[in-house]
Computed example of a mutant assay.
Amino acid sequence: MDLFSNEGEKQRNLLPYHGTVIYYGRLMPTQTANHYLNELLSNIEWKNDEAVIFGKHILTKRKVAWYGDKEFEYTYSNITKKALPWTAALLELKDIAEKTLGETFNSCLLNLYHSGEEGMAWHSDGEKDLKKNGAIGSMSFGAERKFAFKHKESKQTISLILEHGSLLVMRDETQRHWLHRLPPTKQTHKARVNLTFRTIENK
């Protein structure tokens, strides 16, 4: 099931069962989104992502950064990261996400995809440090990319296009029952920056 036409789909649950995903579309004018994209590309401490898979250390082309209210430690793919202090631009974007969603977040994991050749495999954000069934606000800048969900049992898939300056939220039991991914594409050579605002507990 593809939801490439986002008009009319906004603020409606895109998942048929076992979770909540709402796409709010573009939250700001193109000029404002361009400003934030440039800020994020220039002033974030980007590093190549790392993972330990079957005992092998992997370094990805995709770059990541981790920011938060304090030096939260966050572990995924057997690699632990320590949060950096917020930048002014990140605090502005966090405020936009919180007011739009009616949530509060204390951290943000950022991903930089240099071109459509870089993506993310099927996964769910079920790390033990995350608030159980908490909201994850996903804000996108740069290249428009397809984003897909797949139910862990039924294998049903749903996809949509994430626009420049847009916001999507995943809530409730979404991470327990659904995988998501950013498939690679040869259709774009432009960079994309994704911010996922999260709530870390017990730290």
Rank of each mutant, 00 (worst) to 15 (best):
R145P: 11
K99V: 05
K186T: 14
K70W: 00
T87K: 00
G25F: 08
N13L: 09
L160M: 14
E73A: 08
Q175T: 13
K56R: 07
N43T: 10
G102N: 07
S107E: 00
E201V: 09
H151C: 01
S166F: 05
A51S: 06
Q31A: 09
I136F: 09
L15N: 07
T104L: 03
G68S: 01
D2I: 14
E117W: 13
R12A: 14
K63F: 05
I58K: 13
Y74E: 04
T174V: 00
N13I: 02
H177M: 04
D125C: 06
E9Q: 14
G142F: 07
T196K: 12
W122P: 04
G102R: 13
T30I: 10
N202G: 10
K94D: 05
T75R: 12
L101Y: 03
N133H: 14
N38Y: 02
G68M: 01
S42Q: 13
D2A: 14
D49N: 11
G165I: 00
H114I: 11
L84W: 00
A148M: 14
E39S: 03
R171A: 10
R176H: 12
T30V: 11
M170C: 08
E7L: 08
N48H: 10
A88L: 07
N43H: 15
R198S: 09
L40K: 04
L167G: 02
A88W: 03
H180G: 11
S124C: 15
R176D: 05
L37Q: 10
E153P: 01
A148Y: 08
I96F: 07
L168E: 12
I79Y: 03
S115V: 04
K56H: 06
P16S: 11
A51T: 01
T188A: 06
H114Q: 14
